[in-house]
Computed example of a mutant assay.
Amino acid sequence: MHYIHQGQCCNAGDGYFGWVCNTTNGCFCKQGQTCQKTLSPNCPGHCVDNPWGIGCVDEKHNLAFRKPTSQSSTEGGNSYPPSLAVDGNNSTDACATTNQENNSWWQVDLGGLYVIRSVAVIRPNNCQTISMYIGNDTTQQGNIQLMATCSFEQTVDPPVLARYVKFSKPGLASLQLCEVIIRGYTYPYNTAFGKTASQSSFIRHNNVNWTAKYAIDGNTNANFGARGCSHTQNENNPWWKVDLNATYSIYSVTLVNRDGINGRHLKNIEINAVLPNNTFNHCASRVEHLPHGGTVELPCNSAPVVGQFVRISLTHNSPAPLTLCEVMVKGYKYQGK
């Protein structure tokens, strides 16, 4: 890890990140400001919420520390429980250990969605290759093969939005993990707030045009009468779209459904990130309707997906309205590679 202590943040507006817009080091910085890089547990001064990088709490903190864990079995009864791998003790004398069994596994629940940048593993001697899964489906086995080295750090590139990290060992074997250290950061900020939105149509009700802007006004009130929701006509394949004014790496989209019986229409949802050349990058789908008056975050299936626009549409077989009381898009300005 490079320790850089002071310098000029990139002069490109909120949302850009890195040391002079370098994605390897630094904080999320505010335009024209200087970030002081220290080893204190925060990014002082002039950084936006949820910074990462040298001196920033989310990058330094182990996301897995003392979080709930589970494993396929425990050797010696309860002598080597799964919690030993997230207790902050890097010693190889006390490790989470399964029985000798087929397809042994260990898993940590981070308790929420995090953007995961790297995973470090400490194991005892004579280590064999294991697999790792990072995602939101607890039934999955490892799909990332890790090196046989006992102590290593695996960079996750591009970073993944996930709640669970799982290790597995194929065949008849015991899985031992002495410590698991997960680096990353919390939610990106809402990039859609106050931007320009459009939709396939709108209704006029109580002398108000219920246009697309009401879904990104910061008002999460699910009561349609509170003037906080967008609303299209009854039509085939209605859509709503926000222009983020720049290309973003998008991790998730949160929707607030209207309350009451008319909340039944928000189902068969398709969410895409769209590039300026009209290339669609699929983010997420949902068949069942959102809870009436409920808020649901839909992580992008292959996060991050890249686009300047976020388009939400319904794929009903019959005409229906699209009503959105709030849309929140979590992401960061795209830096490319």
Score class of each variant (00 low, 15 high):
265 H>V: 01
24 T>W: 02
337 K>G: 04
205 H>A: 14
235 E>H: 02
279 T>S: 03
248 Y>Q: 03
305 V>I: 06
26 G>C: 04
214 Y>D: 05
254 T>L: 15
96 A>L: 12
232 T>R: 06
95 C>T: 09
1 M>S: 10
19 W>I: 12
294 G>H: 03
270 E>G: 03
24 T>H: 06
256 V>F: 10
97 T>K: 12
155 T>G: 02
12 A>W: 02
309 F>E: 00
144 I>S: 07
123 R>Y: 05
187 Y>W: 08
110 L>M: 13
67 K>T: 12
259 D>T: 10
163 R>T: 04
49 D>W: 05
214 Y>W: 14
185 Y>C: 04
323 T>V: 12
58 D>Q: 11
288 E>G: 01
41 P>Q: 08
282 H>W: 00
186 T>P: 00
165 V>D: 10
258 R>E: 04
98 T>D: 04
205 H>M: 14
149 T>D: 01
15 G>L: 02
106 W>G: 11
189 Y>S: 11
132 M>R: 04
18 G>R: 13
5 H>D: 15
4 I>A: 14
209 N>F: 00
135 G>W: 08
68 P>L: 12
234 N>P: 06
67 K>F: 15
337 K>T: 15
197 A>R: 09
122 I>G: 05
141 Q>E: 09
117 R>L: 00
277 N>Q: 12
241 K>M: 09
144 I>P: 01
212 A>N: 03
74 T>Y: 01
299 P>F: 06
24 T>N: 02
152 F>P: 01
314 L>I: 04
99 N>V: 03
43 C>R: 10
235 E>Q: 09
153 E>G: 05
225 G>P: 07
302 S>Q: 08
212 A>Q: 06
249 S>R: 00
58 D>G: 14
161 L>H: 00
6 Q>E: 14
115 V>F: 07
134 I>C: 11
31 Q>I: 08
169 K>R: 08
286 R>H: 02
303 A>Y: 05
52 W>Y: 06
110 L>H: 14
275 L>F: 01
318 S>L: 10
76 G>T: 08
123 R>H: 05
126 N>D: 03
131 S>W: 08
236 N>T: 13
226 A>S: 15
104 S>K: 11
95 C>P: 08
304 P>R: 02
128 Q>Y: 02
124 P>C: 07
82 P>L: 11
91 S>Y: 08
7 G>D: 07
295 T>I: 15
243 D>T: 07
189 Y>V: 08
160 V>H: 07
273 A>T: 04
272 N>D: 11
91 S>I: 00
181 I>H: 13
29 C>R: 05
242 V>Q: 12
314 L>E: 07
128 Q>I: 01
218 G>P: 15
169 K>H: 10
260 G>T: 11
3 Y>W: 10
261 I>H: 13
327 V>I: 13
104 S>A: 15
91 S>F: 10
145 Q>F: 09
148 A>K: 05
219 N>R: 15
176 Q>E: 04
111 G>K: 04
136 N>I: 00
123 R>S: 09
202 F>Y: 14
120 A>C: 04
183 R>M: 08
42 N>D: 15
38 T>L: 11
234 N>S: 11
161 L>D: 00
246 A>P: 01
90 N>H: 14
226 A>H: 13
26 G>L: 05
